[in-house]
Nucleic acid binder design. Structure first.
Lengths: 153, 153
DNA sequence: TAATATTAGTTGACTAGTCAACTAATATGT
DNA sequence: ACATATTAGTTGACTAGTCAACTAATATTA
């Protein structure tokens, strides 16, 4: 019996419980738990990027991105425009409808964040953020470079 | 445009990339990405618990647990036994087939863990573990006590 | 230029996970 | 005891997400 609680277990739990937090709060806009993070990315980080770039950023399969963006387009939250320099690419932009809910949407993330780091000092918040992104980069790098094997660990 | 990278984004990414790491490694046993964490729990933390307890521990819907355990049972990794004190409950136990793969299975998690915390000091590892479990407890408590509202944040 | 390889996106088939409705068993309150 | 409420588990219908096969466009190389 292993006593040490695993890091991946905590990640799994936070992921699922956070989904349960977010889903009812975005569903009032008709946005499901498979779409909210795309709109979040487009609203608060960058829009005008292609589906392929979006898939890489969100670390999801491009098939899922295609369907999620199609849904968001049909619901009027985003529109797609062919890239003038590359006819394969479809760049995605947020619509006025999305901009209208931006503040409310942003509040949702701030609230979730506050719940997650309840009773954390500001040092602890910055620490966990930096450690989490290091973990993310570590596993991402590993997956993208399958040359490595476990003997190198 | 928000510049501060969100905690939940890191969690989402680590979750998905870790799934991509684990899935091909458990599929050699015929175990899919929806089942490995149940077997992990049963092998290394506790077996003999009911599906309901398992669902709560894993923070997944009991319907998913029912199907995942049914699959693991049909594949010979676990068996279910009616609780002698409560005919509603079905307690789940690992089989010899599971015990046989235990070490290999454990190595998989140790390897994933090592990848995640590559270049971390042992202090950083313990720190992120403790901060993650505090985050988990915070969001879990919030979800389980819907009395609270965002004004209390 | 033509042949080939790579990239962006879509679709179909599949697994993962949720939600709601249900059955059966237990607990509770009278 | 009986009526009611709660708990454990199952099933059906649905959404989320992956993988493989495909089309079309671009890049590469001869």
């Amino acid at each position: 019996m292993k006593k040490q609680k695993s890091l991946i277990k905590a990640i799994l739990d936070i992921y699922r419980i956070s989904q349960a937090y977010i889903t009812p709060r975005t569903s009032k806009y008709g946005i499901g738990r498979g779409q909210w993070y795309f709109l979040n990315k487009l609203l608060f980080e960058e829009d005008g990027i292609s589906q392929e770039e979006l898939s890489k950023e969100m670390v999801v399969d491009s098939a899922h991105t295609a369907r999620a963006i199609k849904f968001l387009e049909e619901s009027g939250f985003v529109y797609r425009k062919k890239d003038p320099n590359d006819a394969r690419k479809k760049n995605i932009y947020v619509t006025d409808k999305s901009v209208e809910i931006r503040d409310d949407y942003h509040g949702l993330y701030k609230d979730l964040n506050k719940i997650l780091v309840k009773d954390f000092t500001s040092e602890e918040i910055e620490l966990v953020r930096s450690l989490l992104y290091r973990m993310r980069d570590n596993i991402k790098l590993y997956i993208e470079n399958p040359i490595q094997d476990s003997s190198e660990l």
